[in-house]
Design a protein around this nucleic acid. Structure first.
Lengths: 134, 134
DNA sequence: CTAGACCTTCCCATCATGGTAAGGTCAAGC
DNA sequence: GCTTGACCTTACCATGATGGGAAGGTCTAG
């Protein structure tokens, strides 16, 4: 299989497949006489795995760990679960930060008339003129 | 004021202040004979503004807009509100994506025994062996 | 034999931030 | 006056994940 077909079937762009190879996330495939990369079903499967992990927000470092665990028949599901829960904790932290921003912003936006006059509590807050929306 | 003091007082690192100057987000300050940047209160104020906007998750492009609006006595609060609500919408989209990941992951993690055995629905899902957790 | 669809490597860009190196400036203390 | 140390300067490189594009090689169908 050429890289284009694997890309289409795995959902990982050819660009990224080459990149993943260059950083050692996936092994270099064989080459044809033309020097074109030649992939098999196993490679396709691995790339689809990577794709799904990316979709769940795992970093490439975490995905490297997941790939090792996937191929390790001696793995304990505890290891996988630990990695996953650590990732969930990171997501939670990120969600919390974003929600806090959102909360502040929506309060400010509510207090803003949104008309043609310049007066605006949003600008005031950013300018450090916060009045505690009292 | 030297850059170090402005950095301390605005909460924006000296590194970032120079960077913001280089991309035109803030105007180049005057220079002393020593070629050191020389800031005034207005600069400090502006940088604190930038800092607060960053803390609320605005991108530097959006902050450039906010700075223009801040300095524009002809602004309408509607413009500020529009910008803010667009940013809130971006935050919401991001939060939604993260929550969806979190939801999937926590279901998988719940279904994972987390013991010394290798069997693991998390790995199965990533490997494309999803069984709809039935 | 050519068109065009595919592949190759290489470099650059994004976004916001940090690190480090090599060097200039300045104030305080001896 | 000289040293020390804190500060400043510019310049380059790195992050993380991805994309764009150039310049060129390969293959297949007409």
């Amino acid at each position: 299989m050429q890289i284009g077909e694997v890309a289409r079937r795995s959902g990982v762009s050819a660009k990224m497949i080459r990149h993943y190879e260059s950083i050692g996330l996936i092994p270099p495939p064989g080459r044809r006489d033309s020097n074109y990369r030649d992939y098999g079903h196993h490679d396709l499967h691995r790339l689809a795995f990577v794709r799904r992990a990316r979709d769940l927000g795992f970093s490439l470092d975490e995905i490297a760990d997941l790939l090792r665990l996937w191929g390790d028949r001696q793995r304990s599901s505890a290891d996988v679960k630990r990695l996953t829960e650590s990732h969930i904790a990171q997501l939670d932290a990120k969600i919390r930060r974003l929600k806090e921003m959102r909360r502040t912003l929506s309060h400010l936006a509510e207090a803003c008339d949104g008309d043609e006059r310049p007066d605006c509590p949003i600008i005031d807050e950013l300018a450090g003129l916060a009045d505690g929306h009292a």
